[in-house]
């Protein structure tokens, strides 16, 4: 598990620039899918042909990061946030530009906003910096990926973990009468944009977002929510979507039938790809299977291995089932 995840998170895929992630995933899944294609917005779609009902599973390939906006006379690089970057969460983190140039993300003050932060690539002059990177280049945050007996700690688990879960589900693909679309979506962190067009294109009966959710089991966290090792998180609602009662029910009964641990996920802030599918075109029945992650949107995202296995098991159990076409 850790090796596959390490490979997935090591590819640079800041929103809008997911191509390399897609290429890697494509190389791994081609033997398992009936058809693999990429659409205009950069969604990678793997289809497993089947019956009349279409299930769309989505995990986003993009990660939050930075985009260079300005290089000052001393060669320091100013940047803007791509997606939900809280500068303080990334203080002094290593970054890597899409062309491989490395640097350090620095906040000038304790309460710096993005405009008070810069990337130091070690250039001694404006000219040297300009020769290394261009304005408009994205940079990802870097950190080591490691595991303990029970958890994995890494950058970009949001949502390469979802990508991993989709890939595993495809590889284990159970016999089913449903047609299943494994969609590795682009631009989720900047407004669920890939999912919007992919949902319209595929027009599924059911769409399920496979993403991370917030683990609310750490010191200082005063709200109720999911916990690590609590099992696959079955989404009830988030800020972008209300899950269809029939899908929640089907996921829960699939989990019970296969003895898969699960917890209910009631997320009060943040959205997922199903928010775009629920509103777009004809819409769809929607649901979500998540993995609770500590320290979301930092380089130390922490997830439970047993939760990851539960999520794969749950998706396999669900896609076997007959889809009930009611809200």
């Amino acid at each position: 598990m850790i090796d596959e995840i390490r490979k997935l998170v090591s590819v640079n895929g800041v929103s809008g620039n997911e191509k390399n992630v897609c290429e890697y995933i494509k190389s791994q899944i081609i033997p398992y899918a009936d058809k693999v294609y990429t659409d205009v917005l950069g969604n990678l779609v793997a289809v497993k042909r089947g019956g009349k009902k279409r299930i769309m599973l989505m995990a986003h390939t993009d990660e939050i990061g930075l985009v260079s906006t300005f290089i000052d006379e001393k060669g320091f690089v100013r940047a803007a946030a791509v997606g939900g970057v809280s500068p303080q969460n990334f203080r002094n983190c290593h970054v890597t530009f899409e062309n491989g140039v490395r640097g350090v993300f620095v906040c000038e003050k304790n309460d710096s906003k993005m405009q008070d932060c810069y990337i130091d690539i070690g250039a001694s002059s404006f000219d040297e910096a300009v020769s290394k990177i261009d304005i408009g280049m994205t940079a990802r945050f870097d950190a080591d990926t490691f595991e303990s007996d029970s958890v994995i700690v890494s950058k970009a688990l949001d949502d390469r973990l979802g990508c991993y879960i989709l890939m595993e589900t495809l590889k284990k693909m159970p016999v089913t009468d449903n047609e299943v679309y494994f969609v590795f979506t682009s631009q989720e962190e900047v407004g669920l944009r890939g999912a919007k067009v992919s949902g319209f294109d595929i027009n599924p009966d059911v769409a399920i977002a496979v993403d991370v959710t917030v683990a609310a089991d750490t010191p200082g966290c005063d709200s109720y929510g999911c916990r690590l090792h609590g099992g696959a998180a079955i989404k009830i609602r988030d800020a972008s979507a209300i899950c269809s009662a029939s899908v929640v029910e089907a996921l829960e009964s699939a989990a019970r039938e296969h003895d898969i641990p699960f917890q209910r996920d009631v997320l009060t802030a943040g959205g997922t790809d199903i928010g775009a599918v629920q509103t777009g075109g004809r819409g769809a029945l929607v649901g979500g299977v998540s993995v609770a992650v500590r320290n979301v949107h930092t380089v130390s995202e922490t997830a439970s291995k047993s939760d990851i296995r539960a999520a794969v098991g749950l998706l396999c159990a669900y896609i076997e089932k007959e889809v009930e076409n009611k809200a």
Partner: peptide, 15 residues
């Protein structure tokens, strides 16, 4: 459905 949540119901019904 769900006008108070952003209105996906009317949007997809109109489609």
């Amino acid at each position: 459905a769900a006008e108070e949540f952003g209105g996906y119901g009317a949007h997809t019904a109109a489609f």
